[in-house]
Amino acid sequence: MDLQIALLLSQDGIVNGSIYALLALALVLVFAVTRVIFIPQGEFVAYGALTLAAFQAGKTPGTLWLLLGAGVLVALIDTVIAVRAGAPGRLKRIALWDLALPAVVAGLVLGLQPATLPLAAQVALALAVVVPLGPMLYRLAYQPLAEASVLVLLIVSVAVHLALVGLGLLFFGAEGSRTTPFSEAQFNLGTLTVNGQTLWVLGASCVLIVALALFFGRTLYGKALRATAINRVGARLMGISTSMAGKLSFTLAAGIGALSGILIAPITTIYYDTGFLVGLKGFVAAIIAGLASYPLAAAGAILVGLLESFSSFWASAFKEVIVFTLIIPVLLWRSLTSHHVEEEE
């Protein structure tokens, strides 16, 4: 291997690593706030990318129908609960978020012919379709089990993952798609060629990480999420409801997932089931961080990205084996440094 190849591989590794970093951050966030190990994160990556691809191909993505359907289902369930509890005040909120919002999004998608819109509008529209699925998913699958053990929530996650992968196949078919790059520009740094999309991915990841840091450090809602992660009872006593925190963290995770998918879709061909492996690599990074530390998760993600790109050069058939085997030494190290008798939640 010469320097140029090494540089090329590093560049690849860092680009992928920055996507894994975003996903790892979302996974750590969701776990801290809700104790959910968010396996379906990867499906949001695929849904984001493929929804955008469908727009560009002039098709109506199936995710739109999923959004409408999930909205109606959530509205039905919550209306029944609100009526039983004698709290008609909640109905307005339900109508707004679960019915009106999906309807408006559907109206835009069906009315605007997204294929003719500028890329930025297509991206915004794709996010508008996919991101609301996050909180709806929390409401339908997880909220009824909010008090259950991590293990039960994990099994639910796996079930959700399967259902979403199946739906992904139904919506988008088995063929993969690529989207138009954000930028066709190319830059030469010495012998290394850097293309515009690479810079987009890196730049967007950095902006997103800074935005997240500001959200958690400066805004009251961000602090409320941290508070829930630190002390659930304490947060409830401040009026921060567990379900609100859950929906908010799922919204963020869905947004990060969908955006990650949109960012890499011009570089990699995305299939309906690509997201799972991408998300799992985010997980390897999150596990490196013990599902707790954000900076460690980001560093771990870059490590995973580099390891992946270099092993694809040396032993491409065993790329996945090498990346997933990485967690063995990580677990060994964690196991040797942890000294507590596990007591069930």
């Binding site: 190990i37 293990l151 799992l280 058939a317 065993f318 997933f324 196991s335």
Partner: peptide
């Protein structure tokens, strides 16, 4: 030995990774 001393969710996560690894190994 690697996972069972850690919190309960490391075992299933470890088995997911190991399940994928072995699958690719069999295939390659």
């Amino acid at each position: 030995f690697l996972t069972l001393r850690l919190s309960g969710h490391y075992l299933p996560l470890g088995t997911i990774a190991w399940g994928i690894s072995l699958y690719f190994l069999f295939g390659n």
